[in-house]
Computed example of a mutant assay.
Amino acid sequence: MMGSRIRREKLTINRMIALYQQRCPQANQQPGHYAALNAYADKRLDKCVFGEEKPACKQCPVHCYQPAKREEMKQIMRWAGPRMLWRHPILTVLHLIDDRRAVPELPEKYRPKK
Rank of each mutant, 00 (worst) to 15 (best):
M77R: 14
L19T: 11
P82H: 11
A56E: 01
Q59T: 07
R15Q: 10
K109P: 09
P112C: 14
Q66M: 03
D42M: 03
E108H: 07
H63E: 12
V103N: 00
I13Y: 04
H95Q: 14
L94K: 10
Q75C: 02
E52N: 10
Q30G: 12
R44V: 15
I6H: 05
A36W: 05
W79Y: 14
R100P: 06
F50A: 00
K58A: 11
R100M: 13
P31V: 04
P55A: 05
H63I: 12
A18S: 12
A35T: 11
V93N: 03
M2H: 05
P82Y: 04
L11D: 15
Q30S: 11
S4M: 12
W79C: 05
L37E: 09
Y65V: 00
C57I: 03
L85G: 10
R8E: 07
A56P: 05
N28R: 11
C24L: 06
M84A: 01
G32M: 02
H88A: 03
K113C: 06
T92G: 03
R15N: 05
I97D: 01
K58V: 07
V49G: 12
R78L: 04
K54D: 00
V62E: 07
M2L: 10
P61A: 02
L96C: 14
E72L: 07
K113Y: 11
R23Q: 14
T12A: 02
I90M: 13
D46H: 13
M73W: 00
K69T: 04
E9M: 14
K109H: 06
D99T: 08
P25H: 09
P112L: 11
H95E: 12
S4N: 15
V103D: 00
C24Q: 06
E52V: 07
A35W: 07
D42T: 00
Q26G: 14
G81C: 12
H95N: 11
K58S: 13
R101Q: 15
N38V: 03
Y110G: 03
R101M: 07
L37Y: 07
R87L: 07
I17G: 00
A27M: 02
A36T: 08
P107H: 08
E72D: 11
Q26I: 13
H63G: 08
V103I: 01
C48H: 15
C48E: 10
K69Y: 02
Q66V: 09
D42C: 12
N14R: 15
G3E: 13
P31C: 01
L91R: 04
R15I: 03
P112H: 12
A80P: 09
E52G: 08
S4P: 15
D98K: 05
M77T: 15
A27Y: 02
Y65P: 00
K113T: 12
E72V: 02
R5D: 10
K43N: 14
Y34S: 04
D42V: 01
R100G: 06
P89K: 05
D98N: 08
S4V: 14
I17M: 06
Q21V: 14
T92D: 06
R78H: 14
Y40L: 06
T12F: 01
A36F: 10
H33P: 10
G3L: 08
E53V: 02
R100F: 10
W79T: 09
P89I: 09
N38M: 04
F50W: 00
K58T: 13
A56F: 11
R15C: 02
C64T: 15
P67A: 03
A41R: 00
Q26P: 12
L96Y: 12
